[in-house]
Structures are given as C-alpha cells and as structure tokens.
Write a protein that binds this DNA or RNA. Structure first.
Length: 158
DNA sequence: TCCGTATTGAACT
DNA sequence: AGTTCAATACGGA
C-alpha cells in the first residue's frame, strides 16, 4: 500500500492506495508526526489525483461527480453495510436501524454500528450520515467533532 | 466460548 | 420527559 498525504483546509489527510483503489483514509493526526511519503508509483498517480479532488469536494460539502475506486476489505456483512451507506446522498441521513433494514438484517442494528466503526474509508463511505434513531449523534471513529463538522458542511443540522 | 459494541424500544420512575 | 434494562447480531480473542 502506498501512502499519499493530502493537504486540505482541515489538515493533512493520509490516503493509502493499492492498484485496486483507495483502501484507507486517515484523518489528520493529532501530533502530526508524519514521515514524508515516498513518491507515488506512476501507475497510482491518476488514482491519487482522483482521491485528492474527491476529498476536497467532500470536505466542502459538495458531492464529487464520481467517487474514486475503492479497495475495501472486510467481512461480507461489513461490505454490505458500507455498500448501503454509499446510497445515502449528501445532506441526507439514515438511522442505524434503517441501514439494518436495507441490508435485510432488520435486527442487526447494533452490528451496523460496529461495521460503521470498522469503515476504513470514512467520508467517502459516509458513516457520518448514520445517526441513532432517537437520541444523540451516535459515534464516530475519528471523534464526534468530525461527524458534526461533516454533517454541517452538508447542510444538515440537528 | 465469551466479551464488548457508533442501538433499540418497552417498562419504568 | 428522563432513565434503566434486556435483547440482540456481529466480530475478535
């Protein structure tokens, strides 16, 4: 996997690329002890460019025309959840139980939460658009502040 | 096996 | 209207 640092107004993200697509996206590190990334191999440069552009658009609340290819690895259940998340448009939200229904596992609402937490590519796979049915914001692997910020950028407020 | 979880809804104050 | 609590599917150890 090849790291790619992406500068944005919100900090430096790190994307991990494979020939199959974007495998992981990391939020800006707290202490930012960050090695300089080796140059990307030629073959991955178009992917790197696509990821960079899409990330910049997502961070300003505008859905990119197309998401870059992604190389998601996880269990069948997790992939089903992540797939379902991709169908939630920017500015809309779903509840954990709605996602569970969508993947035909209506009683797996808690498991959906776990799968969201295991999502390797936040933002593009929009786990921030999944909220508890009644109270609060649920959780977010990179911290609830990010979840709030992303939702706010998409024009959603609670 | 057993344990923890980014939930839920019903049954309680 | 707020709080407790058991049921629950899943993944990791």
């Amino acid at each position: 996997m090849h790291p790619l640092h992406i500068k944005t107004a919100d900090g430096v993200f790190t994307a991990w690329l494979t020939p199959r697509g974007l495998a992981r996206l990391e939020f800006p590190a707290n202490a930012a002890i960050r090695k300089t990334a080796p140059p990307l191999p030629q073959a991955l440069r178009p992917l790197g460019r696509a990821v960079t552009l899409a990330l910049q658009r997502c961070l300003t609340g505008r859905a990119p025309a197309a998401l870059p290819p992604m190389d998601l690895c996880g269990t069948a259940f997790q992939k089903a959840v992540w797939q379902a998340l991709l169908s939630i448009p920017a500015g809309r939200t779903a509840t954990y139980s709605q996602v569970a229904e969508k993947i035909k596992a209506p009683r797996a609402t808690r498991a959906v939460g776990s799968a969201c937490g295991a999502n390797p590519v936040p933002i593009f796979v929009p786990c921030h658009r999944v909220l508890p049915k009644t109270h609060g914001l649920g959780g977010f692997s990179a911290g609830l502040e990010w979840k709030r910020l992303l939702l706010a950028r998409e024009g959603f407020s609670r």
